[in-house]
Amino acid sequence: MSKSATQCTHRLVTSPAGRLHLVEQGSGPLVLLVHGFPESWYSWRHQLPALAAAGYRAVAIDVRGYGRSSRPDSVAAYRMLDLVADNLAVVHALGEQSAVIVGHDWGSVIAANSALLQPDVFRAVGLLSVPYAPRGGPRPSEVFARLGGDEEFYVSYFQEPGRAEAEIEPDVRGWLAGFYAAMSGDTMPASTAPDPHFVSKSGTLRDRFPKDRHPSWLGQGELDAYAEEFERTGLIGALNRYRNMDRDWEDLADFDGAPITQPSLFVGGSRDAATTWLADAIDAYPTTLPGLVSSHLLDGCGHWIQQERPDDVNRLLSGWLASLPS
């Protein structure tokens, strides 16, 4: 169905978990956009019209557990294999045989694994903020437990069901505002301040969030959009993704060290901990992403890259998409 770049369609499609909510704009080759934590389809609001105007059928989903998509009760329902199956279901529900997939944060990891596990469907992959690092090494929970010394890494903090929810859900709006500020290029704490990715003994994550500072990309309307959704759904579905990292490590054992060979793009922020902590993963791209077309670090940008620097991201995405074989 052809639509102009100014039109936008919301719909639900069937997935293995139940129903997935998606937002569609434009016509042409399919580009599937996958968000991260704690976001929704709305994080792609700047990219949908830009990609539609460039001649693409841009579709942004609410990942299972988020927004208006289904929220299964089982923690195991949020394993990577199921999220890849959801993306495959979206492509087929839209009447397509293939798609370019682009992800941010956890969406980057989901997009990478979708391309790895379903290369005949996902013909190219764009990764924002979180670099591709093949499955390998020790069990993830063991790695995270060794980080931080007397402090606890946020991924470990998220593991126990109900623990992080008890911190977040009494004040979803305030917690989200602080979390976004802690990882935005213009509001993140100084390098000399306590690291907001870690929790002190008997502390919480929000203890280290910036106070009374909103990043430039986050106005009241944007914060309202996120807060209203998470106030309605809670955070358990979103946090259950973190609670499957060991399960994913087991599920993907056959893909240990596997490269992604399709054409790929990476865009990160120079101030994002994901690009500094995982610098070795970026350096390994000649081996792990042999189809890499281009890799970019946006100077001064933090973690929320497509919202902090939408014009740069739109330019890079459009240029990369135009370079792909039809």
Rank of each mutant, 00 (worst) to 15 (best):
D86W: 04
P196V: 10
Y56W: 10
R79H: 14
G319W: 13
S4Q: 10
P286M: 05
Q7R: 02
P210I: 01
L298T: 07
V13D: 02
D254S: 15
A111C: 08
G291Y: 03
P286K: 07
M183T: 11
D299M: 12
M183L: 15
L94G: 11
C301W: 01
L81F: 09
E231H: 05
E39N: 15
L83M: 15
R135V: 15
A284Y: 01
L316Y: 04
G185A: 07
E169Q: 03
F37C: 07
G234A: 02
A284G: 05
Y42C: 12
A124F: 13
E160P: 00
P49H: 02
G149I: 02
P194N: 03
Y78V: 12
D283A: 09
A181G: 08
S270W: 01
G300W: 01
S4T: 14
S216V: 13
G219L: 07
R309E: 15
R315H: 15
P38G: 04
W249Y: 10
D82R: 10
H303E: 14
G95H: 00
S40D: 04
P119C: 08
S40V: 15
P138F: 06
Y78W: 12
D186K: 06
N244M: 07
L316I: 14
R247V: 08
E142A: 14
R232Y: 04
